[in-house]
Simulated assay, not measured.
Amino acid sequence: MSTATYIPLKTLCTHYKVETTFFQDLNEYGLIEITTIEQAPCIHQDHIKNLESMVRLHQDLHINLEGIDTVMNLLDKIHHLQEELKTVKNRLRIFEE
């Protein structure tokens, strides 16, 4: 396991100006996954985009954890529906030609 792909929570707390408890609450709620590396809690860099969205929802819009969960689920459904629509359009083009 490479530690270069993980970002320590302390770094994220400093960058986003939030308390460690916010990330711990997100983890307990099942919205993020915290991994401990060398006794330091970290988050994988692939999850930073979603994490940043959650932080912005919380800070800018004052949305609680339940609301963040709802918004993230709806955004995920929208993404899947867009992918499905793209697939259906591609299939339709085959029959139109």
Rank of each mutant, 00 (worst) to 15 (best):
T70Q: 13
A40H: 07
R93K: 13
P8E: 05
L26A: 05
P41N: 08
I78N: 13
T5I: 05
T87F: 03
E33H: 11
L12M: 02
V18K: 05
G67R: 06
I7E: 04
S2G: 14
V71F: 12
I48W: 02
V71K: 04
Q45M: 12
M1F: 08
S53D: 15
H62L: 10
I32L: 02
G67P: 01
S2H: 12
R56M: 15
K17G: 05
A4I: 04
K77A: 15
K49I: 07
Q45H: 11
I34S: 03
I78H: 11
E52R: 10
F95N: 10
N27L: 00
H47N: 13
R56E: 15
H15Q: 10
L61K: 09
N64S: 11
V18Q: 04
I37Q: 08
E66Y: 03
N27Q: 12
I63L: 05
D76F: 09
M72S: 03
S2T: 10
Q82R: 13
K89Q: 14
N90Q: 15
R93D: 09
A4V: 07
I37C: 05
V71C: 12
I43Y: 02
I94E: 12
R56G: 00
F22D: 06
L31D: 08
D25R: 12
N90M: 13
K89S: 08
M72G: 04
Q24F: 08
N90W: 00
I63S: 02
C13E: 07
K17V: 03
C13L: 01
Y16P: 13
I37M: 06
F95M: 11
Q59F: 03
D25S: 14
T70F: 14
E66W: 01
Q59N: 09
Q82L: 11
E83A: 08
E38G: 01
R56D: 15
E38T: 03
L81V: 02
K10S: 11
E96M: 05
E83W: 00
V18N: 04
H47D: 14
F23R: 01
A40I: 11
N50M: 12
N64A: 08
D76K: 14
T3M: 13
E28W: 02
E19G: 07
L57T: 05
Y6L: 13
L61C: 05
K49Q: 11
V55Q: 04
K89W: 01
D76S: 15
E96G: 04
F22V: 09
K49M: 07
L85D: 15
K89A: 02
Q39T: 07
F23L: 08
L9G: 07
D46P: 00
K10Y: 10
G67F: 02
L9T: 14
D60E: 13
E28K: 10
F23K: 00
Y16R: 08
T87I: 09
M54S: 05
S53T: 14
P8T: 04
Q39P: 02
N50S: 14
H47T: 07
I94Y: 01
Q24P: 00
Q82Y: 00
T5Q: 13
I34Y: 02
L61P: 01
I63V: 12
M72I: 08
D25K: 12
I78M: 15
T35K: 10
I94F: 05
Y6V: 06
D60S: 08
Y16N: 09
Y16A: 00
E83N: 08
G30A: 04
E96Q: 09
N27A: 15
P8D: 01
